[in-house]
Each structure stands twice: as C-alpha cells, then as structure tokens.
Amino acid sequence: MTSHPHDALFRAVFSEPENASGELQAVLPPSLAARFDWSTLRHEPGSFVDEAFVGRHTDLLFSVSLRHNRAERAFAYVLMEHQSEPDRFMVLRVLGYQVRIWEQFLKDHPDAKRLPAILPIVVHHGERGWHEAVRFSEILAIEPDDYAELSEFVPSFRFMLDDLIQVSDEELRDRATATAYARLALFFLKQTRRGDALVQGLHVFSALLRELWRTPRGEAALATLLRYYVTVKEGTTEPLRQAVVAAIGPKVEGVLMTIAENWVAQGLLKGKAETLLEVLEARGLRVTSEQRARILACTDPTQLSRWAKTVVTATSADALFAP
C-alpha cells in the first residue's frame, strides 16, 4: 500500500513531538492545555484507522503527563481527514478508534486499574470546510426532550476540530505555540489543492520560511514541503519557485535545483517500479502488499533493472526476490 501524499506530509511533520506539541496546544482549550507538561509529549507507535479508510484518514497517537501528577499520562489522538467532503459519521469512527487504543493499552498494561483519558482531535483540510457532527449525541436518533433521560446510557463526548479552511492564513501564521515547520505544513495542507491560493498567500509566511531555512534541518524540511506540493498540484511549479526565492533569497536557488533534479530522478525510478508491477499484473502473477511496497520503495536503479529482466521469465512474483 503506497502512502498518500497528505498522509506522508502529515506524518513527516507531526510525528515529531516538537511539531505536534504546538498544534495540540493551539487546538485544545487554553485551560485544558495548561494542565499538561508538554515537555513530556511522546509519539506512540501504531495506527488505529480501519484499512478501508487509510486513503481518507491518517492518525497519530501521543501520550503526555499531567502537570500535577507526572505519573498519570493521557493520550492525545490526532486524526487527519484527507477527503474534500467530511465523513458524516466521523464521530462514530473516532469512538471506535478510542476503544482500540484502550484495548491496546490494556494489552500493554495488563495490571492497569484505570484507563487513560483520550483527547480526540480531528484536523480537516477539505476545500468546503467541516459541516458534520463533532458530538456523539448529534448522530443519535434521539429527540432533545428524550435525551436528558437517555444520556446516562449512551456515549457522550466530542472531538476537537481544527478545520483549516476556516482558519485564515494570518491566524495559522500567528499560532505562537507551533514551530515554523508545523505552521507551514498546515498552510500547505490547506492551500495546495486550491488553485493558486498557496503561491498567492505564501508572502504571509515569508518570515516563517526564513526561520525554517535557518534551522539545522531547514533544507530537508523545505524539500518535504515542496515535494508535497509537486505531488499534489498539477501544472507548472515555477510560480512556487519564484515565491520561495523571493521569501528566502537567491541563496536557496542551488538547493531548489538539487531538489528538482532529485524529483526527476525519483519520478523515473517510480515509473520503472510501476511498469514492473504492470508487467506482473499482465502476466497474471499475484503480488502481495509487502512485495508491492518493496518494489515501489526501491531507489536502486540496478536492482530495478535486474527485476525487469527477471520478470520476463518469472513464474511467480517470489522469483524476483530469490537470491
């Protein structure tokens, strides 16, 4: 299974606690955010999204200690919505994911007497904004007059929503708790699919681009953002190149050229890998998801050429990987 470009960017940026911390603090109510020691934020392994929704949702799980009791840790569960149209029953899916997190927690801590709190957060970057339920009570077929009597017997929670389309570029830029990389990533997620909106609004983030460029990993971070743009956006990338140079200065030109050359090389390798898979399919040779992932992830042109020769006479996909 290949990684969706939105998924790849989101994970590349927000799986790092320093970037996730600011986003979480910006989304949570200030009084609630103040209860946690954000220096203890830790990215937890695993994904809890149904396989059928992997192309539409991406999730990250974090744990963080409470200030008044560092031994107690809560979970922050961040789910990003990829699709343009919001998921009508997202709040039900969030409940299911929370149950899976608790079940995994009990497997890892069989002697636990209580379950940790889970703070569910949904980041949506669809073009039309979020217009579905955020509270579980909103999807129940219960009239308001009856809910008071029934509320003790049904789940009752809401998720916190970060609907990027409803946040102005200036507000994203001014999220003081978030790193420059995190704020720029949210801006790219919000605007890349919206025509020329990203290039036209990039001047708002000029100072953040320069701040990112000066960080130890600034060059790699900038490459990640630009790679996402090229993958998602159709058409010429020249306007974006000009905007980045205008923001950072001529010194970035050399890096942009290197990035562009790498994109071309990666595109050629990806084309060879996809052709190899097409040949396997045409010959009726079954390919497992692991084998598909290995072929698509290959960056060695010699290995791809060797596989291309082998596939002509191979009797199974396994033959490609034989010693």
Rank of each mutant, 00 (worst) to 15 (best):
Q191A: 15
L161T: 12
L150F: 04
R158H: 02
E170V: 06
E171N: 14
F153D: 01
F157A: 05
Q191S: 15
L172T: 06
T179D: 07
S168R: 01
V167N: 13
L189G: 06
Q166C: 05
L150G: 01
Y181F: 03
T179S: 05
D146F: 05
L184A: 11
Y181K: 04
Q191L: 08
V154H: 07
D146A: 13
A185E: 10
Q191Y: 03
Q166N: 14
D163V: 11
L184K: 07
E143Q: 15
M160I: 11
E152S: 15
T177L: 04
D174K: 14
I165E: 15
D145I: 05
R183E: 05
L164T: 09
A148C: 11
R173N: 12
E152L: 09
L161S: 07
A178W: 10
Q191H: 14
M160T: 15
Y181G: 00
Y147E: 15
L164D: 12
T192S: 05
F157W: 09
I165P: 01
E170F: 03
Y147G: 13
R175W: 03
P144K: 07
D145G: 07
R158T: 03
L150D: 01
L161C: 15
E171Y: 12
A148Y: 15
I142C: 15
A148I: 12
A185Y: 01
E152Q: 15
K190I: 02
F157R: 04
D145N: 06
S168W: 05
L150I: 00
L172N: 02
T179E: 06
D174A: 11
F187M: 14
E171L: 02
A148P: 12
T179F: 10
F153E: 02
D162T: 06
Q191V: 07
L172P: 00
V167S: 08
V167P: 08
I165C: 10
S151L: 14
A178V: 11
R175H: 02
R173G: 01
I142V: 13
A182E: 05
L186P: 01
T177Y: 13
D174Q: 09
